[in-house]
Design a protein around this nucleic acid. Structure first.
Lengths: 194, 194
DNA sequence: GTTAGCATGTAAGGAGTTACATGATTTT
DNA sequence: AAAATCATGTAACTCCTTACATGCTAAC
């Protein structure tokens, strides 16, 4: 697929929560090519109504190394997969992620959010006296949002466990994730070195 | 107040949704001083247990110009006040904002979110066929979050209208905001020029 | 025949963060 | 004596955006 089309597709699927501009897409594609994960080939591919296309489109294709790296990233379930910056993208790719990894990411995300809940509740207790009604209401609303997100995750985890039809006794077990797995984190692919 | 203490206070009150590092706080304070909105004075102010404080703390104070600018910013209700980046901070300062401005910001925010709702719903309709269950679930959840936020705003707007005991016939009227008012937007105060 | 869309790309800037450097003071 | 906390600051870097430059093709 070439860059222009790729961006349209990405913004269509992820658009509501994750947009992307050309200024970051094209350098990113070149960085991926420099790492050998994709190849960039000029294509005289004919669009519907054109006899001759002067402006060559650059068609990007995944290399075997890229496919392997993608597979590794999709099967990793370390901290970076459940942080705010990455969780939604990882979730959007759950269709290509195995059940084990899906469950670990959901559990990691849940643990992360309950930790945050504790932090918020503590600062809520400490500062309640000194704050006006609006600041209080804002914090209350933020707390509620996170609580709701945890319940959403609970439903998803239940669903994942249900579809697996195994480990019926495992409910309530903590995440149990090896932090070392996060060595294969998706990370930014924008660096020029490599 | 001096920088170190200021940051502690800020992270205590806003910490759950807006943190701040020294790397941005100190340059920001100097930029504000350069604009004449605050003064920076070395203070040999004695902390509780010290007889002599060698390391002078820099105490920042609002100038009359700074106070006036702050007043102007707090009474502005343009687009920047209800965008994602600013709304929460503006809301946290509602205790120092007049009722008229509070209502306008809440209405502007509500309009902004309902617009977003439309965009999400449309892309939802267009792409529903091509997407797997997880992407769909993510979008459904995102939609629900925004819908909930709109209902939260509705409650707040009702409350604001209730406490004003005026304009009883105004319910349902659109935001009615002069875009020119946003000339006084809070914006980033980090620029060195000025 | 001009506007709109396709297609690739660069330069500059924005709004921060992390990591470091420095040094005093208080607690353990 | 070591470690934590107070206090200020800088350099480098991150990740992304906006605005621009270029030139084609399709639609009105």
């Amino acid at each position: 697929m070439h860059g222009y089309e790729l961006r349209k597709q990405l913004n269509l699927v992820l658009g509501s929560f994750r947009a992307l501009s050309y200024g970051s897409l094209y350098p990113c594609l070149r960085a991926l090519a420099a790492r050998g994960w994709i190849t960039a080939a000029e294509s005289p591919d004919a669009p519907p109504h054109a006899l001759a296309v002067k402006r060559a489109r650059i068609v990007y294709r995944l290399t075997p190394e890229g496919a392997e790296h993608l597979r590794a990233v999709l099967s990793s379930a370390g901290p970076s997969s459940w942080e705010d910056e990455n969780f939604d993208v990882r979730f959007a790719l759950f269709g290509r992620t195995d059940a084990e990894t899906r469950l670990r990411i959901l559990e990691g995300r849940r643990t992360r959010l309950t930790e945050r809940l504790e932090t918020i509740r503590q600062s809520f207790q400490r500062t309640r006296e000194r704050m006006d009604e609006y600041t209080l209401e804002l914090q209350r609303h933020g707390l509620e949002q996170v609580e709701r997100e945890v319940r959403w995750l609970d439903d998803l985890i239940d669903h994942e466990r249900g579809t697996r039809r195994a480990r019926a006794t495992d409910v309530g077990r903590p995440a149990d994730v090896d932090p070392a797995e996060d060595a294969l984190r998706p990370g930014p692919e924008l660096k020029e070195r490599g």
